Amino acid sequence: MPAVLALVCATALFTATVPLFRGWFDLYVYYGTVHSWVWHGGRIYDFVVPGTQYGFTYPPFAAVCMLPLALMSRPVAVGAALALNVAASAVIVRALLGRMSGWRGYAVVGCLFLLLEPVRDTFSFGQVNLVLLALVLCDSRLGRWSGAATGLAAAFKLTPALFVLHLLLTGRRRQAAVAAATAVAATALGWLVAPGPSARYWARELWHTDRVGAPGYVSNQSLRGVLARLGDPGGTALWALAVLVVLCVWARRVRRADHRTGIALTGAAACLVSPVTWVHHLVWLLPALALLVRSGRYARSAVAHVLLCSSVVWIWRFDASGPLGFLGSNAYVWLAVWLLASSPRPAAPAAAQSRWRGAWDAP
């Protein structure tokens, strides 16, 4: 018990003093966009946070889902975002690792979860990544509606769309059809509610990937970010080739994988191929980390966890030149590549299989 309390205190001290506080910035983008749209006759993609160049970047369906923000004050919106992320975190931990052995287990796992930089940033920005991950992880539990949660996540934000292809590649054709139909229906709802912004998003905004920020910024831990920090050698052609290679590796591995491994591989691949993968988007690597733990690779999972807690990439925030800068500023990219290439198959030690049996399994 003293060791657990010490870990809780150390986690609280760390999160209060070491990480950068993001000031709910993304939540205020959502909040300002919805309030401008509902109360002031503004357009979804014209709003920018005062003093910045940043505005709403998700499909219109996401703005429709966020309409309740129009009825909230800023403090209430912050509280609602925190509560939603706490609930999503509980769902994710339960889905990935199953039931803990008493409150000590929950306390330890909760601390380790909160220390992860993508998780910290998701809370601090007021982001939605944990909610979307929870939807994808729980999707297989929906019975005849399995696929619907993945479709909603893909309609809300494009990164989870790769999980629809995962369902198709692994022979879950009915679930893939439900996911695709749900995504199309949700997108149609967004078009019905906001036809002008929908036409603008799908015709223009979607293709301007630099509208969310400079692709070479160190927080962009994707293949596109790596090439941008190198000065874009080969331009779009080299990036397209790198994406194609990753997708081929992913498709080959995921076709031979069980459900858990497939989810882990898809999360890693999605982070790599997205044009922009900010650090807080890396919550999609959590299934791969959990898979390492569940398969008994404790040393590897510890190394991956420490790296993803370290915020090491920010050392090269202002200068990523030279060999060390190339390696360090892209540290999370190399982690995603490693997880994609070496995520373990289900052949885990018997003790580890017994310990983790019963959670995060598809029907």
Results as ranks from 00 to 15, higher is better:
Leu152Trp: 07
Pro2Lys: 08
Ala87Asp: 06
Ser101Glu: 13
Leu189Tyr: 11
Ser343Met: 10
Gly171Trp: 10
Leu223Ile: 02
Gly42Met: 05
Ala181Tyr: 15
Arg74Tyr: 14
His40Met: 01
Leu115Ala: 06
Val279Trp: 03
Ala290Asn: 02
Ser222Met: 08
Ala87Ser: 00
Leu67Lys: 12
Leu286Arg: 07
Val76Ser: 14
Ala269Cys: 03
Leu327Gly: 06
Gly55Trp: 04
Leu286Trp: 01
Pro233Gly: 04
Leu71Phe: 15
Leu308His: 05
Leu27Lys: 02
Ala185Thr: 13
Val279Gln: 00
Leu292His: 10
Arg211Ile: 15
Ala149Cys: 02
Gly235Lys: 07
Ala148His: 11
Leu133Gln: 03
Leu189Ser: 08
Arg120Glu: 07
Leu168Val: 14
Leu241Ser: 09
Ala179Met: 11
Val18Trp: 05
Ser146Glu: 12
Ala351Glu: 15
Pro344Gly: 01
Val86Phe: 05
Pro275Lys: 03
Arg173Trp: 15
Cys248Val: 13
Ala264Gln: 06
Leu291Asn: 13
Gly296Leu: 05
Ala80Pro: 10
Ile44Pro: 09
Thr15His: 04
Trp202Ile: 12
Asp258His: 11
Ala228Cys: 07
Ile92Arg: 02
Val283Glu: 04
Phe123Arg: 04
Leu69Pro: 12
Leu71Ile: 04
Thr122Tyr: 08
Tyr54His: 12
Leu238Asp: 06
Gly328Lys: 13
